[in-house]
Design a protein around this nucleic acid. Structure first.
Lengths: 172, 172
DNA sequence: GGTCTCCATGTGATTATATAACGTTACAGG
DNA sequence: CCTGTAACGTTATATAATCACATGGAGACC
């Protein structure tokens, strides 16, 4: 609410999560993209899976598997942990969501469809999470991996710190 | 065992974990370094903490808190989870060990004393872990953080893939 | 249409990981 | 010696994740 730039559309490579945006629109388009991707790839975008993705998109923050389970139960689905874990596993496996290892929590992908290796910025005050891009194979890690003969398949990058919103609250 | 280069001493910035090295020596020197650091900083390098670090150094791999607890119990210390978690918390807080979020496990720091932001290479076959350096604030993530106004305090970089040893076993 | 198979779902039970809360003990400083 | 603080040990509990098994639906195939 500190600015009135709701007309500013972030492009798909911007970090998302610390700024206002067209929320209803991003939910709709992400769901549509997921549906299309599933149809193309022969994947089954079942009701639980759709609901789980919609929950992640609505919350727009990292939520734990049990919190997801509560919401799925409230929506009329099963009430045991595997229900949530299986839906989340599907979403993560297909790039619709990511797991934040640091928080043992899950968040909707901010750049659905695009091939990317995500990096996350996690606020240690308010726990909000923004997704950015990382360049895993470049830089020191890539050099070390090549030198050691290690074949990188996937990288997790999670930065902990203070988000702009919390920074201006405390100012110190 | 594929090479006889046990005389080759890796320098302190090399990745550690996928190659032979002077194991007894690295344990001794790491314990001494920890002791010295604690004496300097007024920290208490108590028996449990020392034993915990020695266990991590001996194993030279990532071990879970409960596995650590078993070993501490065997060494005559308390047998309840907080015993292990507190020792590990101390070691991590003071840079003697790191937590591998991906594995919910802990590993002795390979570059004790040095200020560094570690990056890990985790083999998905044998679970071995090597520590390298990362350059968090450089590259795409640093750019995104600056653009978003996010103040990075700490970064976790964990790469999953195949270690050289497992790679030559399967060859595919 | 029948039926077979595969995959997804739902459930109960269990395992794994981590922390809360509290009393006791060791130790440094006055 | 007294006192404050930090570390330790224990009980109990919270949180996270998986196992194992039964049911059911959608598509493939005849």
């Amino acid at each position: 609410m500190t600015s009135g730039n709701e007309a500013a559309k972030p492009n798909t490579t911007d970090p998302v999560g610390f700024e206002t945006h067209d929320h209803a629109g991003c939910i709709t388009s992400a769901l549509a993209a997921a549906e299309a991707h599933c149809a193309t790839g022969g994947l089954r975008f079942t009701p639980v899976r759709r609901q789980a993705l919609e929950i992640l998109l609505q919350e727009h923050r990292a939520i734990g598997a049990y919190e997801m389970l509560d919401k799925l139960r409230a929506a009329g689905f099963g009430s045991q942990p595997p229900v949530a874990y299986r839906a989340l596993e599907f979403l993560v496996a297909n790039g619709f969501a990511h797991k934040i290892e640091r928080l043992n929590a899950f968040i909707a992908c901010a750049h659905p469809g695009a091939e990317h290796s995500p990096a996350f910025m996690i606020c240690r005050k308010c726990q909000s999470v923004a997704e950015a891009q990382s360049t895993p194979s470049r830089g020191a890690l890539g050099d070390a991996a090549r030198a050691a003969g290690f074949q990188i398949e996937r990288t997790m990058v999670e930065a902990e710190g203070i988000c702009p919103s919390c920074a201006e609250k405390v100012d110190a």
